[in-house]
Nucleic acid binder design. Sequence first.
DNA 1: CGTACTAATGCCTAGTCTTGCACGTTCTTC
DNA 2: GAAGAACGTGCAAGACTAGGCATTAGTACG
Lengths: 252, 252
Amino acid sequence: MLPAQRRDELLRVLRTEGRVVAKDFATRHGLSEDSVRRDLRELAAAGLAQRVYGGALPVSPAVVDYAGRRQVAVENKDRVARAAVELVRPGCTAILDGGTTALAVARALPPDLEATIVTHSPTVAAALAEHPTVEVLVLGGRLFKHSVVTSGSITAEAAAGVWADVFLLGVTGVHPEAGLTTGDPEEAAMKRTLAGRAGDTYVLASAEKIGAASAFRVLPLEHVTGIVTDVPFDDPAARALLDVGAPLIPAT
Amino acid sequence: MLPAQRRDELLRVLRTEGRVVAKDFATRHGLSEDSVRRDLRELAAAGLAQRVYGGALPVSPAVVDYAGRRQVAVENKDRVARAAVELVRPGCTAILDGGTTALAVARALPPDLEATIVTHSPTVAAALAEHPTVEVLVLGGRLFKHSVVTSGSITAEAAAGVWADVFLLGVTGVHPEAGLTTGDPEEAAMKRTLAGRAGDTYVLASAEKIGAASAFRVLPLEHVTGIVTDVPFDDPAARALLDVGAPLIPAT
DNA sequence: CGTACTAATGCCTAGTCTTGCACGTTCTTC
DNA sequence: GAAGAACGTGCAAGACTAGGCATTAGTACG
């Protein structure tokens, strides 16, 4: 078996079975354990696998599985998060919304990024405490239990003292007619306030949000600078959005 | 099953089921209880799980039901926390400091307690999101990475608008001469500010803090209403404190 | 066709990681 | 307060690993 072929096979097994046991793989394919281990080492060095004692695991297997959400959606959110990280330029000030996608963005920020992040989410703030070079400003106020963010007049007042370059906004629906929506009126108002405190507003919308709509409008599509999403552009819902001029940004 | 995979699986179960019972997990996956226990120990050491008698719980109590939490082994901080919970009367307003002991208090609050909790710790705020009947006010401001609390002028300003019945204060040292101390001057100032916003100030001090002193004074002992601690009263350090009139409160 | 070169491989060794077991201790329960 | 379950620790056996080294296979070039 060719070396390259062997590595492809390793990656395939890794994807389909979620793991590779060096010894078993060698036995099953009539290879020496040495070769398999060498391959695994190289795949790990290339960032394509995670080397562990006894074999290898996919790069980020269950680790991304946050709070027991559906794995699929989580992977989507991760993809969106990785793309959204690019929007936070070094030296800039960004407002980060609450929610799992925004949390994923916080975690995905480069460890050496020097920037100022403003957030009304205690969870996001706690996650950002891990980033030594990021300056974090927490917007205080009444804690809104459902989505674990502060909101209301105190928070709005605190936000009034802030001007940011970008706002990364999480919503529950992005719809061609309804625009950006979320499930709670107070939450919607808070997000609207934050959008007013930044130059550019980018929406974080994993595929399942595209074409969906909730009860309360946050903003019309025209007020948005970009919508970061991992939905394929030939998806009907995506097409409908593109038709009304929504600025979709693909998350590879 | 690979060791690394086993740990991932443990974390996954922890997140989805809210707990892991060592014996069951071992039986279900055909593993020795020893390995499972060892893994749990390591996960706990890494801060990814909370070790309890019989198994483990998630670090954040998000999915843990109250019944499951009763099994939690009573460690020092928990003992102090359980005693401190009594200080938060129904209907009152309490300021909760940052730190692990304060976090333990937040988690130990009765699920049906109706009270208002003010905090400058995002971590504590996130934990309190689980308490439907507790009104939570987050003090915003610059995030102080080391101890994961907000502090500084913005936070002080937000605190100025608050008046609470009690302040539960965490420190790193309670010393007969030095008084209450902590390792950072800004942190000390913040705690002092908060103490000025409440009628009574209670200190949360697990045994190892008693008799210890750090570089920066928060308050002299005279300004304190009570010091909740699990140290035995016949301990020399405790005696020294009692001798200077410190109001020690025993945590059973 | 032969030579020189590189890549790939298998084997060996020293060292690390994991595991199951034994033992004494701690915690829970009745 | 006694029995039993769960615990942590120490230890030795075995599995796994990285790196070195010699051999082989494959390739480029004269």
